[in-house]
């Protein structure tokens, strides 16, 4: 049995209206790999995520998820998604939000309680689950959004800026859980960030600037290629190269 990549993007072009936002994007993500999309805001990270999820039809090129061309509604059942902006029902409690989205995602009745406890534990929200979300702080909302992404135990996790507003200690805990999921469950993970420290944790990096991938590879390989010892320096060097062309 050949191992199919979880996500395969080839020659993708994407845009809104007349505007082209992404071009010539190629990427492959396998089971158990963590991919970090890094780049300044407006680079096109969220657009790439939307396309992989099938919320937008590709302008050109192909996107396969679990060997299935997007857009495909049923694929969404296998993707755990955390949006860049918290989208929560403010008058419902944390637990009610989790349960609602779990049901939407197709989590069965038997697993509900177990999954709810697990997801709340990862983000340290157990004690606040019965409070309405309107009483949550910004960081708590972020954590609840992450818990919602985790609740259906999806084989593919897509997290848009998951670490914003999260304190270093919890950030550490979340990364440990992501590594555990990738290693033990074979979960494939895509996340976007503009924090270089997050980039260091990933298996593969894709640096996006002005809609194109300026550098792609494992952190060690990239640092070697650009002869620097930090991801930040790789990004700056790759950016200068892009401007020179």
């Amino acid at each position: 049995m050949t191992i199919q990549p979880v996500v395969q993007v080839t020659g993708l072009q994407q845009g809104y209206g007349q505007k082209i936002v992404l071009s010539d994007i190629d990427l492959t993500l396998k089971r158990g790999q963590i991919l970090a999309l890094i780049g300044p805001s407006g680079a096109g990270k969220t657009t790439l995520i939307r396309t992989i999820m099938g919320m937008m039809r590709p302008r050109a090129g192909q996107v396969l998820v679990f060997n299935q061309a997007v857009p495909d509604r049923l694929l969404l059942a296998r993707i755990g998604f955390m949006a860049q902006t918290d989208a929560l029902y403010e008058s419902l409690t944390g637990a009610e939000n989790l349960t609602f989205f779990a049901k939407m995602q197709g989590v069965g009745h038997e697993e509900m309680t177990k999954q709810l406890t697990y997801a709340a534990n990862v983000v340290n929200l157990q004690s606040a689950l019965d409070q309405p979300v309107k009483n949550y702080s910004g960081g708590m909302k972020r954590r609840l959004s992450l818990a919602i992404a985790l609740i259906s135990k999806p084989p593919l996790l897509i997290l848009d800026e998951p670490t914003i507003g999260i304190d270093p200690e919890l950030r550490r805990k979340i990364w440990e859980e992501l590594h555990r999921l990738a290693h033990d469950q074979g979960t494939a993970i895509i996340l976007t960030t503009h924090v270089m420290a997050d980039a260091e944790e990933a298996d593969i990096l894709m640096m996006i600037r002005n809609g194109t991938a300026i550098a792609q590879g494992t952190p060690t390989q990239l640092k070697a290629d650009y002869q620097t010892n930090s991801i930040e320096a790789v990004f700056l060097a790759a950016g200068r190269q892009q401007d020179a062309h």
Binding site: L76, D86, A87, L88, F101
Partner: peptide, 14 residues
Amino acid sequence: TTGTLYRLLATPVR
């Protein structure tokens, strides 16, 4: 406007 509709559509709901 709160984005929950968009979030909802990121699930396999019809």
